[in-house]
């Protein structure tokens, strides 16, 4: 079985400040990064702030262009010529679902946009699909007439999820999807994601600081620091036998927290 998504030697150098004399910030280099993910698997990316996790997510969905390296979907390289395929198959959930929804239009039109641009569905089919997707993520069909400001944070997260799912993608990339949620809503969303993943056989790549969730739902983990992958492997292996010093610290901190909660 070939990998669903295969990333080979992905590199990116941030050269934004190259002509600024006064503010000589150090160049940020990301990579090389290698990822293999099979259908139905979950990959977690962990690491400190500024370690390039979000940048990696942006590279995967195509918001930034890598300097070298290739991303293969089903063994097929993603280039500029099959941009549409990327739009259809790799979808992103943004860090801040509040910002990622357009305040000026209804949720129905927000969900309609990807369908209108990427499929040949008629208006009625699209409306049916929107209702269906809203119900799937645990909202009501009436929510399509609502605006962003009328929803709670958890509901917004659900809409962001609906937006990602509406095109029946194969890979879902999520940048800290659970960060801004309270524990009960967070577990609701986690369960929702796991159910949907089981149903559709999605590959799911997500970034998180919450090691509890990472341990709970991910099959594989990569640990990033200063733009480099310092450790990668299966979840049980990393949590039980961490090799790098940094990973050990992370895991110990997590374990200490659990032990304190238990006593």
């Amino acid at each position: 079985m070939t990998d669903l998504i295969h990333v080979e030697d992905l590199r990116f150098v941030n050269k934004k400040d190259s002509f600024n004399f006064f503010n000589k910030t150090k160049q940020f280099e990301l990579g090389p990064i290698n990822i293999d993910l099979k259908a139905g698997e979950t990959l977690a990316i962990i690491g400190a702030n500024g370690s390039g996790k979000s940048l990696l997510a942006k590279l995967l969905v195509g918001l930034e262009k890598p300097d070298s390296g290739q991303i293969y979907l089903h063994g097929e390289a993603l280039t500029k010529s099959n941009q549409r395929q990327r739009c259809l198959n790799i979808r992103m959930i943004f860090q801040n679902s509040n910002e990622s929804l357009n305040p000026g239009i209804t949720l129905g039109s927000i969900l309609d946009e990807p369908l209108r641009l990427n499929t040949t569905m008629s208006m009625l089919e699209r409306a049916a699909k929107i209702e269906q997707t809203l119900v799937k993520v645990g909202l009501m069909p009436e929510h399509q007439f609502f605006y962003r400001h009328m929803l709670s944070d958890g509901q917004r997260q659900r809409v962001a999820l609906a937006r990602a799912l509406i095109l029946n993608p194969q890979v879902l990339v999520a940048d800290e999807p659970f960060a801004a949620l309270d524990p009960s809503v967070r577990s609701q969303i986690v369960n929702l994601l796991m159910n949907i993943q089981r149903e559709l056989g999605l590959g799911f790549i997500f970034i998180s600081h919450n090691l509890g969730i990472v341990r709970h739902i991910s099959d594989k983990i990569i640990v990033m620091r200063h733009g480099k992958v310092i450790e990668a492997g299966r979840t049980e292996v990393i949590f039980n036998w961490p090799k790098e010093e940094y990973t050990k610290k992370l895991v110990h901190a997590h374990q200490a927290l659990i032990n304190r909660q238990n006593t």
Binding site: L63, R84, S100, E113, L117, N118, R163
Partner: peptide, 8 residues
């Protein structure tokens, strides 16, 4: 950016 990702 989200709209851009939709291919707009």
């Amino acid at each position: 950016r989200a709209a851009k990702l939709d291919g707009a």
